[in-house]
Design a protein around this nucleic acid. Structure first.
Lengths: 223, 223
DNA sequence: ACTACGGTTGAATCCTGAA
DNA sequence: GTTCAGGATTCAACCGTAG
């Protein structure tokens, strides 16, 4: 059992991960949206969505496909704004099985007069080979409460419960879960909470420190 | 006030529709999936999903953009399987404002062991120019009961309530609603039920007869 | 032409206090 | 202790305008 964290660009770290050594990937890459919260602008830096973003996704997806074991699953968060790009890149490496809909508990802003109020995010769910889901059949529309703003430590933080839901659906205790875009370490916390091993990669120093501290509280962390 | 129906390929009919004469488009084109209902296959013909399908979407979208008035909205049903293709074609002609999620009340079939159970369909919502939504702000996740199998007269039939919801959000009484892929006439029934005019086009003889009969019961139909 | 910034909705949920 | 009503809170935006 172990937790292994890397403070580095995942494009640098992944090539040193052995092929077919990962049992499950659950990750939340940058949405390439030039997003900056207008509500908590002092709290978080802008998430970059530069031209490099497309290359980042392409390269990391290819490496993710290499390190993933046969008959193992992948979950990639994504927004509808660029779902076409993410879907096509995803399908170059994995069999896309569902476009899951995460329905949140409240709406966001946006165009207040001419748009419907954003209340969901998408998750590309796929696999290499064929892997069955555990725990019975569940709908592809999944409702989970958003992380409460006060306790939020990353601007786009995902609920631990949602990540654990995916992990328990698509892996076994003891399996190795990878997140190449670790952020605040939500996937890591979810993995450890249900007895999986975890490998996390994060390029940003502040987020890396956050997740290192967060996961160290649960279990000794290796580097 | 009028209902106008055409039994023909929409690529043939649309060129004769004047530019900027339509107030709203709500349509459910073929999903390009080689769809065939496994449990009622005898009831419906296979909906064609051949290479011609891509050309059909491209050509009809271009014509839809031409006939639509400035500052008017478009709703196009689509499944996640080809959302990348539909999104890109849509964005060549319209401003995409939302990817709406229609959540059904029950799940469909599909891979029973390795997939999540399909419970939603997508709707591309966009516009030409800028058009405000009526009736307050509503979430982009919309729950409506699916048309049940027994009363279904078309394999991909959408609920009248859902179509009426879109129509009332994005048009005024007396406006002209167009559906170039009329199918069983659901959009037409929805349009008439809230006092809009309707132009419907359907290539398949059986579906055309169905919708002609269905709409004639509500209002005299022109050809 | 760009970039940066201020202002804004409605809905779900949580909190607080009273019945 | 429990329920319920009312207030507070928050939002993987986007428009319009100013510089």
């Amino acid at each position: 059992m172990s937790v292994q964290l890397h403070h580095e660009d995942c494009r640098v770290v992944l090539p040193s991960v052995p092929s077919e050594s990962i049992d499950l990937i659950v990750t939340d890459p940058p949405y390439l949206m030039d997003y900056k919260s207008g509500w908590r602008k002092e709290a978080f830096d802008k998430i970059v969505g530069d031209k490099d973003g497309h290359e980042l996704i392409r390269t990391s997806f290819a490496e993710m496909a290499r390190v993933l074991k046969q008959n193992s699953a992948v979950y990639v968060f994504c927004s509808w704004h660029h779902v076409d790009f993410f879907k096509r890149e995803f399908e170059q490496h994995f069999t896309l099985k569902n476009l899951l809909v995460w329905v949140k508990n409240n709406t966001g802003p946006g165009d207040l007069e001419a748009s419907y109020a954003p209340m969901h995010e998408l998750v590309l769910y796929g696999m290499k080979g064929r892997r069955l889901l555990k725990g019975g059949r569940t709908p592809d529309v999944i409702r989970f409460k958003r992380v409460n703003g006060e306790s939020m430590i990353h601007p786009t933080e995902k609920p631990v419960d949602l990540c654990r839901f995916f992990i328990e659906k698509s892996s076994e205790p003891g399996d190795v879960v990878l997140d190449p875009f670790m952020g605040s370490g939500t996937t890591g916390e979810a993995a450890l909470s249900c007895d999986r091993q975890f490998i996390g990669i994060e390029i940003a120093a502040n987020h890396f420190m956050t997740s290192k501290a967060r996961l160290s509280q649960i279990q000794p962390v290796l580097f």
